[in-house]
Write a protein that binds this DNA or RNA. Sequence first.
DNA 1: CTTACTGTCCTACAGTCATAGGACGGATTG
DNA 2: CAATCCGTCCTATGACTGTAGGACAGTAAG
Lengths: 166, 166
Amino acid sequence: MMFHVDFKSGKPVYLQLVDQVRYAAASGALRPGDPLPSIRPLAEELRVNRNTVAKAYTELESLGVIETVAGKGCFLKENESPLTKRVRHKLLVARIDEVVVTSHQMQVASEVLRSLMEERIQFFDRKKAAAQPDTQEKEQIWTPTSPLSTLPTSTDATESWTPLTD
Amino acid sequence: MMFHVDFKSGKPVYLQLVDQVRYAAASGALRPGDPLPSIRPLAEELRVNRNTVAKAYTELESLGVIETVAGKGCFLKENESPLTKRVRHKLLVARIDEVVVTSHQMQVASEVLRSLMEERIQFFDRKKAAAQPDTQEKEQIWTPTSPLSTLPTSTDATESWTPLTD
DNA sequence: CTTACTGTCCTACAGTCATAGGACGGATTG
DNA sequence: CAATCCGTCCTATGACTGTAGGACAGTAAG
C-alpha cells in the first residue's frame, strides 16, 4: 500500500496524493518510467471517488511530474523542466523567501536555518542516491501530509525553548 | 503608500496584506512597536472592505506577528514565538522540504540551491541589520515575489507531523 | 468481434471562502 | 457630555472548490 490519505487532516485528498508523488519522485522512491497505480483501483483502495485521484494525476501532469497516456496509464516522467534556468531560480527564490521569513518570524537563528536546510538537502540526496540501484521495490512512500488535528502537546509547550538564540 | 494589492493576482487580498506585513517584519521595515495603518483608512486607500483588512490583521494576530488593542490600533509585536523550539523546527523543516522537493523537481542542483538559500538568508539579515538604526524611515514595503505562494496561516500553525524514518 | 482494462469529459451538489455592509463597544479629545 | 477616532461582531452573498456519479473514448488481449 503505497498511498494513503488522512480525511481528518483538512487537506484536500487530491493534494495529499500530489504531494506524495512529488516527494516520492524527489526522494527516488519513484523513478522515471515507473507506472503509477491505475486511477480506479487506487480510488477504491483509498475509498475515494476516481475523479479525486484523477484530479491529482491531472495536477501532476500539469506540473510536469507525470505523463498520462489514455488507455494505458500514468508514468513518472523523465525530469525535463520546460522552464529556463532563470525562471526556475526565480520560482525557487520565492519559496526560499517564504522559509526565511517564517524563520525570522519564529525567531530561528540564521545559523540554525542553515543547518536545518543542509540536513534536508542531504536527506533527499542520500535517499535518491540509495534508490539509484534498481534493486528493491515497495518502499513505503513517505507522507508529507501533516495532520492538523495534532496540536502541540503540553509537554511541547513547557519544553525549554529559547526566545532568541538557539 | 506602504501597502498595495493586486486584484488580478488571484490571491486573496487579505493574504496579500498578511504577506506584506510578515515580509516587512522579517526585513526590518516594520519594527516592534510600530503602528500599523488603521483599518478603515487603509481599506479606503486600497478600495477594499474594512473587513478584508480586519481579516488580515486578525490573521496576523493569530500568527503572533501583531498585537491589536480595540479602540487604539494595531502594533507590531515584540517577537516572542509561543512555540517550542522543537515545534518551530518541525514547522520549518516541513517548509524546507517543500523547497528541496521543488528544487529536485526543477532539476536544480543541490549546490545551486545552497547558494540561493545563502543569498536570501543574507539578504534578509542585511536588511534587518540596516533597519536597526532609528534613522531609517518609511521604506517602501517590499512585495513578496511569489504570486501564488502559500504561506503558513493560523490554520496550520499548530500542525505537527510524524517523524521521518530514514 | 467482446471483454476488461485504461484515462477523460460533463454535470451536480454541498461546503467553504473571500468579500461586503450594518451595528456595536472601547478609547481619546475637547 | 458629544464627536470621532479605533477594532469587533453578525449576517449575507456570490464565487470557488472538493468530491462524486454517469457516460464516453482509447488500448490490449482473448
